[in-house]
Design a binder for these strands. Structure first.
Lengths: 197, 197
DNA sequence: GGCGGGAAATGACCTAGATCAAGTCTGCCG
DNA sequence: CGGCAGACTTGATCTAGGTCATTTCCCGCC
């Protein structure tokens, strides 16, 4: 079992270099927490108060539409951040739910402490800028996939993007992520992906 | 006709405060450029070399799928940034096309100059972090819309999100943005949006 | 070792939206 | 003014994927 704080510092260290004092400041402000499978971190209508970094296990965020269907926006395995950003940034009731799909541990930091970190370690702005750039690219690609690919192609992309996850996820969650019904995904997987060209 | 550089500084000024020397540094590194309607800024397969800030008119970015259909990722009217971020960040051949849908003017800065700006004005990291946060939220919402809403609902959202743009855009581009065929959008608009509940 | 509940499979049927193929309408360029 | 290329419309038909209901499977739990 790896030290969660070490994981966080390593993660940050990929983009910027922190001195020992800075590392201490960072680790001093994050608090550990663990979640059991299916336990909620955040529910629709609440106001999200903290940034969350996953140190083990896996969380997911999803929205529920007006027919009661779940649409998964993000999986967050070890080493990822997860949030309802709209709620967090504007301190407004969120539209997402976030829960653990496995027993998980995470590090949490309140918004005012986060702002303090930005003030005292301006380099962190850079770290998160770089993360967010990747995040935008990822969402753009996923959006284009949804606009231009068939369900089967989206499934294949998913398998390539999350080769580990796919083996531990219930099929219905994959369905919900790629945007098809569980029934349809089930049928699709039974069908022998037509050879082409 | 507003000064394009003033527009850029005003834009940045919404997030951070620059001193006169910093403002001069910024404006000194951006170069003006203009595009005629339909003129390309960037085409699939090229490697994007610069950040682009739109100062008048409107650009769009879109991908072409394996059936030859366009899918519009973004419209960038005055005051917005536009790029093929994947290409720009990784200096890799891009999958997007970017062109002007109206006569447009823009400010451009090469990547090395941009890095210099980040070095000399670290606050800019913050500015772009804040922009990118908004951008992620926007893409998340659009993705959820695509996963959970009908074509008509997506159209309505679009009208609310871009009330000005909708009046000057050809219908087929709206169709391409919301992810339906032009034929279907045409029919849909002819149908009197069923009253419900 | 039986049982309760969620996950998956499966069958029959349905529909939003796509496709293809003609038209028409419009604006702009020579 | 004439013509022609794009944008929009319209009709007929098709299909990927959805819906609903039933059954089976599997796994954790008492």
């Amino acid at each position: 079992m790896k030290d969660p704080y070490a994981l966080l510092l390593e993660h940050i260290g990929r983009n910027i270099n922190l001195g020992p004092a800075e590392e201490e400041l960072v680790t001093g402000l994050f608090r550990e927490r663990s979640l059991k499978p299916k336990q909620f971190l955040f529910q629709e209508g609440e106001i999200l108060k903290s940034q969350v970094f996953v140190t083990s296990g896996c969380l997911r965020s999803y929205a529920i539409d007006h027919n009661g269907f779940e649409h998964i926006l993000q999986f967050a395995p070890e080493g990822w951040w997860i949030a309802d950003m709209q709620s967090l940034l504007d301190q407004v009731p969120g539209k997402l739910n976030i829960d653990a799909i496995q027993a998980s541990t995470l590090l949490q930091i309140g918004m005012s402490d986060m702002e303090r970190l930005y003030r005292e370690i301006p380099q962190l702005e850079r770290h998160f800028r770089l993360l967010l750039e990747r995040s935008v690219v990822t969402y753009q690609n996923r959006l284009l996939d949804n606009l231009s690919l068939s369900a089967r192609e989206r499934y294949e992309h998913f398998c390539r993007a999350y080769p580990t996850l796919i083996r531990e996820l219930p099929q219905k969650q994959v369905a919900s992520y790629i945007g098809v019904t569980p029934e349809f995904l089930s049928r699709m997987l039974r069908q022998p992906a037509s050879r082409k060209g």
